[in-house]
Design a protein around this nucleic acid. Sequence first.
DNA 1: CTGAAAGCGCTTACAG
DNA 2: CTGAAAGCGCTTACAG
Lengths: 327, 327
Amino acid sequence: MNKTISDIAQMAGVAKSTVSRFLNGGSVSEDTRQRIERIIKQYNYVPNTFAQSLKAKKTSIIGTVVPRLDSFATSQTLIGIDEELRSNQYQMLIANTSQDMQREIDAIYDFARQKVSGIILLAAEVTDAHLKAAEDIGIPVLLVGQQHEQLHSLVHNDDQAGYEMGRYVVEQGHREIVYMGVSEKDQAVGIHRREGFQRAITECGECEVKYYETSFKMSEAIATAETILKESTPTIIVGATDNIALGVMKIAFSKKIQIPQELSVTGFGGYDITEMIHPTLTTVKYHYLQAGQVAANHIIRLVKGELVEKRTVLDTELILRESVDKV
Amino acid sequence: MNKTISDIAQMAGVAKSTVSRFLNGGSVSEDTRQRIERIIKQYNYVPNTFAQSLKAKKTSIIGTVVPRLDSFATSQTLIGIDEELRSNQYQMLIANTSQDMQREIDAIYDFARQKVSGIILLAAEVTDAHLKAAEDIGIPVLLVGQQHEQLHSLVHNDDQAGYEMGRYVVEQGHREIVYMGVSEKDQAVGIHRREGFQRAITECGECEVKYYETSFKMSEAIATAETILKESTPTIIVGATDNIALGVMKIAFSKKIQIPQELSVTGFGGYDITEMIHPTLTTVKYHYLQAGQVAANHIIRLVKGELVEKRTVLDTELILRESVDKV
DNA sequence: CTGAAAGCGCTTACAG
DNA sequence: CTGAAAGCGCTTACAG
């Protein structure tokens, strides 16, 4: 039922190679151009993408690997990628790996098999298997959210984020400080963010902070926070993510601890939800949407063989809201 | 660099048609099978999907059209679809339309061009253009979240959800009831959900409810709620979605109206966030993940030409939490 | 500017 | 069970 290039050629009274040339912007006579154009419009002809790809051995598709779909950061980044890709006539293919490392690796190979032109990898952790996969496939790969010297990467300035939050906490007079972080396997969040924070604490001179490790899951954050509040009486708890901060707020509410009067709380991320709740959460905003746009832009340039800086760092922004009190 | 079926055939000392037959589960002698298998494994051969699709004129891809990526409902549904598709060897392609109706239509045609086997359409509104597109392409389409007699559809039981919430509100003794709904263009939410609620109110006999229309955006919900609270003093505000309820809570907090002591609030959806906040929100849980799984299952059956009920309705579940007081 | 021919990597009847 | 041949719908040198 769909017309092929041969049909169009025949109806326009030319050879199919001429139609192909027209389609691909080659030079054809004015007369031919008009005839072909008319027929194409009339039958609403669109080239078969498979046949094109089979010849070209490549596509205009960028594959994006995400660890999970139900996170603010992922959604926003994907939207940014999609927008930018679309306006450059690229398509986005999404592979969700549900935080399964092996599926992440598989997804990279799968994308290669489908001849995507480039891959954007939103990974929480970069292993040797990731590096090997990236090397094996011979397709540009861009890492987002983490960095690695062997890969092009785009990161948020976690060090700055941590540092600014640290300075603010110190400035507000807090001295009983607790920081709830995550595993160092996630270098960006587990190491850089925390180290930035620590830097501010160190500069303070007289300040100290107690570190606890928890996970990205709110249920675990709640459990950890409960333990913390049993063992000590911090004036502020800094959650390494907004979700962790939400967990802290939750346990505080149930223990009738007033925020921020009795306990200040902060997060990182700048999720929409942080300004919907009460009190609104002081946090560091990460520009996920922009990250997505820049990522798309970079991968396209890599695909075209253009030069792209090996590592791009996006600024973050401290957002002061209601969940922190001065002591 | 990638091996083709000819390479494999040659190395195995057979014809490529034999390799193809082997690949597609046709009968080959034990001896041949082993030889081919060995070579394939050795070179890690994977068939070129374009060539396959070009011949087959179809793919194992299901296209999913979503109005937005940054919504709990969408994320959960997508995860469900992805899971189920994956375990049936299908792939998911996502097209995000950013709530742009035209892009929704375009996406349907685009998918058809890419020869997806089926399309899952998460639309808030079904127009004639949608119906025409579905008809034009000659590919199975499954509507999720809305229903239409011309299309296979999968919906949540909005009527039941509304009704149960209505009964609960009445049982709790509320008589100053406000319902904040959305446009009737969204039939599921704008009409069915509200009508279910109204049914419970009508059955009550002595009850009444004032309806206001707002939008899915929290900022608008906040504005609408503010107006409502200026004009009247309801004992409960029922938001047609959790986001609307969140908007109500937000304005209540800022006006120092205690929830639920001075004002009860409820929503619909069962978003994760509703149990992270304080007070936790009484709502009706929609089983989005399951909806995604069922949707994937149905579209696969439609693709295979199997019989699928025209309309499937998923139960909802009233979740009682802290945001409602008895009066 | 235009067209005939070869070829991309598969699959599918059709013979044998 | 196996293989030669045709064909899916394009693009790309190569002649003219």
